[in-house]
Design a protein around this nucleic acid. Structure first.
Lengths: 160, 160
DNA sequence: GATTGACCTTAACAATGGTTAAGGTTTCAT
DNA sequence: ATGAAACCTTAACCATTGTTAAGGTCAATC
């Protein structure tokens, strides 16, 4: 369907066209629709027909995935877009800002982890009680005499 | 079993003890064993008995997970440890160094993404053809006249 | 009007990282 | 020696993000 001519440039898109242009598989588009991330109308013969806005939505979904946002959260964010009109620059900017913050936090967490890991490289301390990397959440010190014996329980006595 | 006394401080650990000390569930320990990340001997009655080294391995697994390394890759890394002796500081250092590099790369990718996303906040361009975030992998320009009409197909004519 | 490609739905499968349940055995302390 | 707590195995189930298959319909073209 949908010969692309000057006359029908505004025509609704078929699922195949959206797949081709957005670079995601038809099956993924079906999936996104089931999850409420995108929407379609139906043709007389029950085939999906998409407004061109769907291309932006899919692009946004792909960016969000790169950031590491789970689809459920993307769905929420997209649900916050206005229904009455096509989203405008400000609408998209809001999403970008929101996700940039998540991205910032993720980067910060990873950077902190990296710094701790760097300390570990020099000393091989990944395995020791004192290691900053391990200690958060390591309940060792609460549980009897064995818990503090990290340095003593190796044949050869190396403090690894 | 395993009264903790001065006399049996070097005793093998049961799965419950490992779970408690490492902070991971018994089911997860079984799972790690199935996947080859940790190993156990068996008691006369077929119960798992762990060498204390397992606590280090589990700690390393947890760190790797925080970094975002999939278990299969962790399994590979752990398999590279010497079998004959308990791993020493240098062995653990090698793992740390290896993963630090992966972490560095991950951080760099995310940072680049963040910078691009920052550009998008100002202009709302997440949806536009020119956007650096979108263009890699966006096949738009190859597919007919519709492909370039990002600015023209919105009622109201905003360039969003 | 028939063919062919694109489309439809439903359901099952895949990988990842486990948890939960069911039914039976071992270990420990008393 | 017995009862409770911990352990065993197998199998099914959970969420996430889709893909693949089966069986049937629609749309556009020759």
């Amino acid at each position: 369907m949908a010969r692309i001519t000057a006359a029908n440039i505004d025509k609704a898109l078929t699922v195949g066209e959206v797949a081709e242009r957005s670079g995601v598989a038809v099956s993924a588009l079906h999936f996104y629709e089931r999850k409420g991330l995108i929407h379609s109308r139906r043709s007389a013969g029950n085939q999906r027909r998409y407004h061109r806005d769907v291309l932006r939505r899919v692009a946004v979904i792909k960016v969000a995935q790169r950031i590491g946002i789970p689809l459920a959260e993307v769905a929420e964010a997209l649900a916050s877009l206005p229904e009455a009109r096509s989203p405008n620059a400000r609408d998209w900017s809001r999403l970008s800002a929101r996700w940039r913050q998540e991205l910032d936090e993720r980067i910060q967490r990873l950077t902190q982890l990296r710094d701790q890991l760097s300390d570990c490289i020099g000393c091989g301390c990944l395995s020791m009680t004192a290691c900053r990397l391990r200690n958060p959440g390591d309940e060792l010190s609460e549980h009897g005499p064995g818990a503090r014996r990290w340095e003593g329980d190796l044949p050869g006595g190396q403090a690894d």
